[in-house]
């Protein structure tokens, strides 16, 4: 079951890369996100799964589709046809290498068991308060960045029209 979900995740990621239509790419990415969320649920990471579903599969997809709609004024960008051949070769090599390395590592890695304790909200609020400050800062930065790029006064100098 777990393996099946992971394979779905990778398959839809590949579709997102190779699809010729940007809209299809964005939707494949959203489906990949749903698979990732299911993987999280399967591992018991419920909160992360819900967040992945709502924010990544939801919000980020909406952002992508808005941007694609806003920039659709001249046909498609011609991606070279080579990808149909090069990508499978690349992927095969990557997968073989990956399997070889991981087989070698099986049972090899020593590790220390962490001291997992408390409920989710306890961990987030009591241990990771500093992260929340960082989140606020990142959101500020993102909002200010969008405000700065879409401000109304005339842009400086070199337009290439």
């Amino acid at each position: 079951m777990h393996l099946f979900l992971l394979i779905g995740l990778v398959a839809f990621s590949i579709m997102a890369v190779l699809s010729r239509d940007l809209l299809k790419s964005a939707i494949s990415l959203a489906v990949a996100s749903i698979f990732l969320a299911l993987v999280f649920f399967h591992l018991g990471a419920v909160y992360a799964g819900v967040f992945e579903l709502s924010v990544v599969a939801g919000l980020i997809t909406v952002l992508f589709i808005t941007a694609i709609a806003l920039t659709r004024n001249d046909g498609e960008v011609a991606e070279s046809k080579r990808h149909r051949i090069v990508f499978p070769l690349f992927f095969l090599a990557l997968a073989v290498l990956d399997i070889l390395v991981m087989r070698k590592l099986l049972g090899q890695i020593p590790a220390i068991q962490g001291a997992g304790s408390g409920t989710f909200s306890q961990v987030l609020w009591n241990q990771r308060t500093f992260d929340l400050v960082g989140q606020v800062g990142a959101i500020f930065a993102g909002v200010l960045a969008v405000l700065a790029l879409f401000r109304h006064d005339s842009p400086k100098g070199d337009s290439h029209e």
Binding site: F40, L43, G44, A45, V46, Y47, A48, F51, E52, A111, I112, Q113, G114, A115, G116, S117, G118, T119, F120, Q122, V123, L124, Q127, R128, D131
Partner: peptide
């Protein structure tokens, strides 16, 4: 590592 809560907070 049995530390799923920390991982989820980070994710």
């Amino acid at each position: 590592r049995d530390n799923l809560m920390l991982a989820q907070a980070m994710v």
